[in-house]
Structures are given as C-alpha cells and as structure tokens.
C-alpha cells in the first residue's frame, strides 16, 4: 500500500479525529474519572469534586480522593465476574448462531439473479423501519406462554403444555439473533457478491463437487466479510441491555443490565462507570485482533 505524506493526510483525518475526541475520548475520560471516585449522597452522587481549577491545594485533595477501590470491588465480587463471563458467552453463542443463519442468507442473496439482489438486500434492512423497542415487545407477544408461538405449537398438536421461553436465556438469544441479523448478513453479502463467479466454475471444472468448491473457494474468500460481521455483532451484543432486560429472566446476567442497575437502581455512579470501563477494555481485545488480521492480509496483498 502506498503511504501518503503526513502533511497531506492531516487535514483529512482532522474531522473524524475531532469527532472522536469530542464524542468518544472526552466522555470516556469523564467516565474513567468517575470510576475512580467513590459514591456519596450528594449531587452529583460521587466524590471527590474538584473545588477550584486554579487552586493547587484543591487539585491535590481531588487527586488524593481518587482510587481504584471500585475496580478492586469488581474483581473481588463474583457477581461482576459472572455477569462479564455470561455476557461474553451469550455474545459468542449468538455470534455463532448469527453466522450459521446469516451465511446461507447472504449466500442466497449473492447468488440470486442480479435484478433481485437490491430488493433482497432492502428486505433484510426493512425491520429497521420500526423501533427496536417495539420489535422486542412484539417478541414478548410471540414468546409468552399464551403467545402466538405456543398457540401455534399447541394448535398443531406438537405440544400439550406451553413452553416457557420468555424470561429465559433462550428468549434472549432469539431476540439478539433476530435484532442483529442484518449486521451479519450485510457485510457477508458485500464480500460474497464481489466474488468472480468464474472462481466457483473453475473449482468445479477442476473436479470439485459443489460442496468442496464451497469449502475450498467460496468460504475462505468470504472470511473477511465473516470477521467483519462477527465483530459488528459481537461487540454491541456484549453490552446489550434492552433485549436481555425485556426478554431475559432474573437469572440472565449481562454486563449491560448490571451496569444499568448499578447506575439507576443503586445510584452508584462510580461502580457503574468502572463496569463500563472494564467492558470497553474487554472489547478492545477482539477489535485489535480483527485489525491485526486485516493488517496481515493487507501486507500479503500489497
């Protein structure tokens, strides 16, 4: 890849840079600062507060008041460990499910006649026209014991007593897979659609059955799209709040819910901030891994 001289690249990067600084780095710094405070019955509900910006003694008192107690609590308390691990587990499981459902969909759209493709792509995005909240409420109506799903299954004679799906982890997984499917399908479709059709023909001409041609040509060439889709799903699912809150039971622990209850129920802003910072740090891992993978590919290609 050609490197652009620094002098010319700077103005191009300035705008997104400023955007990130104003709307990501600055808020993150504030959250990080709150996470080092301790909760107090005050307004805002934590201390220390900086008494004066130009006062050295005030700064000293402020800095001495900060500490890592919230993080020690996070590490020591099993609740946060299990919420974190449970979030990662649910995110991983739903990402796998999303890949299993989204891949055939993306492949079918990419192999559909060219004039159908824009319509099919549009259809995968149609759910976004309705608010996520409303769509998840609709799932409650579908999944509840006297809901449509149980009604249909009982009506078909497949079951006698209603299945209890709502307020279980299964309901959370259903909701997450439903809500995130476009984020898996679209990047995968983008990568599958670009493939030269002659490659699959070449594979079959060289003796590969359709299944072998898929595993040796189509699939390896779509790995970038799959990685992008998985990242787009996995990262926000770890912090997902609405879906586990509405569809999950009290035993479905996820970081997003924990954070919410620390913040609103317990009014413990510093601890909630510590959870948020910890979650961000956990998610930096997969993002960096994805970037390293992309960089290695770019190197092999250049």
């Amino acid at each position: 890849m050609r490197t652009v001289s620094r002098g010319r690249v700077w103005p191009v990067l300035a705008l997104p840079g400023l955007w990130l600084a104003a709307f990501f780095l600055l808020p993150f710094a504030i959250v990080a600062k709150i996470s080092l405070s301790e909760s107090a019955t005050a307004q805002p509900p934590y201390r220390p507060q900086l008494a004066g910006i130009l006062d050295a003694a005030a700064w000293r008192a402020f800095l001495e008041g900060l500490g890592f107690d919230n993080y020690r609590l996070l590490v020591a308390d099993d609740l946060y460990w299990s919420a974190g691990l449970s979030s990662l587990r649910i995110a991983a499981l739903s990402t796998v499910l999303l890949a299993l459902i989204g891949y055939p969909m993306a492949l079918a759209i990419a192999r559909a006649p060219e004039r159908w493709r824009p319509l099919l792509v549009a259809l995968t995005v149609v759910p976004f026209w309705t608010s996520l909240l409303i769509r998840i409420y609709a799932w409650i109506a579908i999944l509840k014991p006297e809901g449509w799903l149980n009604g249909a299954l009982i009506g078909a004679g497949l079951i006698r007593t209603p299945l209890s799906i709502l307020n279980t982890e299964a309901a959370v997984l259903i909701g997450i897979v439903y809500a995130y499917l476009p984020f898996m399908v679209l990047p995968l479709y983008g990568s599958l659609e670009r493939h030269d059709r002659a490659l699959v023909e070449a594979a079959s001409d060289l003796g590969a059955s359709p299944l072998r041609a898929f595993w040796t040509v189509t699939f390896p060439l779509s790995l970038r799209g799959l990685a992008a889709g998985a990242l787009l799903c996995f990262v926000p699912i770890v912090g997902e709040f609405i879906i586990p809150d509405l569809l999950g039971g009290s035993d479905t622990l996820m970081l997003g819910r924990t954070l919410w209850s620390e913040f609103f129920a317990n009014r413990d802003w510093p601890l909630a901030s510590a959870v948020a910072v910890a979650m961000t740090l956990i998610l930096v891992g997969p993002i960096l891994a994805h970037r390293a993978l992309e960089a290695r590919r770019a190197e092999g290609r250049a």
């Binding site: 490659l199 070449a202 594979a203 060289l206 003796g207 590969a208 059955s209 040796t216 390896p220 060439l221």
Partner: peptide, 23 residues
C-alpha cells in the same frame, strides 16, 4: 478462463495443484 479465474487465496503451486486434490 479468459479472466484466468486463479484462486486469489492460494499460491501459484496450490492453484496448479487444486484439481489434483480430488484425484
């Protein structure tokens, strides 16, 4: 093929050997 349709993810040797995998 006119476009050659070489597999971009495989080396030259692996491209040449691709059709031999199934023999």
């Amino acid at each position: 093929f006119q476009s050659y349709a070489l597999f971009p993810h495989l080396s030259v040797a692996a491209n040449v050997g691709y059709g031999l995998r199934w023999l």
